[in-house]
Design a protein around this nucleic acid. Structure first.
Lengths: 117, 117
DNA sequence: GTTATATATTTAATTTTCTTAAATATATAA
DNA sequence: TTATATATTTAAGAAAATTAAATATATAAC
């Protein structure tokens, strides 16, 4: 069982990151891309993904266009201008946070205590 | 406003990490230490911290001892043997996750698309 | 003296976020 | 005709964290 708990809070920013790299993407594609990039370590389930997309849309950060591809409905999501700005901010903040977290996790183990015996 | 959302899911592991470096710590101390190590970027509020500690205790991963210091009650938390093993696992998993996340965030921006025009 | 700040723990209501699961539907390979 | 892959949506429930308040002592400032 992969450690899913750590993803919490980062999913939205990952979605924003992918959308900032592509003119338009659809839900399934986003989910696959995350699996691919993370070598299946990070999974973006639909139950998590679609609510995120709806919320970003309701906030005016992305727009949707529907297309029929191979007879199947496909809904594309694209960042708006404010969405692009927001995405840059979030990604930058997450990178910063990640570095800080690594610092916190790096200290020790038992710094300065390895001289005993 | 600092990006607090990213912390979700990582708090427990941060607590475990600190406890694995110290024989015993009390709640307030843990909270302060996280602020210090992260230069105030990560905040462990009591509403988050104490429920985490209670849960770890109920799972047998840590034990508590109460002391009176300067007339004030102070409750120390220490990892049990299984707690130490668990802490190592969690920290290692979080480090792995963090590296994966950085890889995902690193790709792009707009790889291969900067030749247009 | 009393006010503010720092130390210290606990608990509860609420919100956010995610998991799990199910429903719906088409295309294609076995 | 069965399984697998593609594709979206929604809802119930759980988990985790936020916010806020209650309680209590010590000490520094005014």
């Amino acid at each position: 069982m992969k450690s899913k708990e750590f993803i919490k809070g980062t999913l939205k920013t990952i979605v924003l990151k992918l959308l900032s790299e592509n003119e338009k993407m659809y839900g399934y594609e986003i989910s696959r891309k995350v699996s691919e990039l993370s070598k299946d370590e990070i999974q973006l389930t639909y139950g998590a993904l679609y609510p995120i997309l709806y919320k970003l849309e309701s906030e005016g950060l992305l727009t949707t266009t529907s297309e029929i591809v191979d007879n199947r409905a496909r809904k594309y999501y694209s960042l708006t201008d404010s969405g692009k700005t927001f995405a840059e901010e979030k990604v930058s903040q997450l990178q910063q946070f990640t570095e800080t977290l690594m610092q916190v996790l790096k200290t020790g183990p038992n710094t300065m205590l390895n001289f005993e015996q």
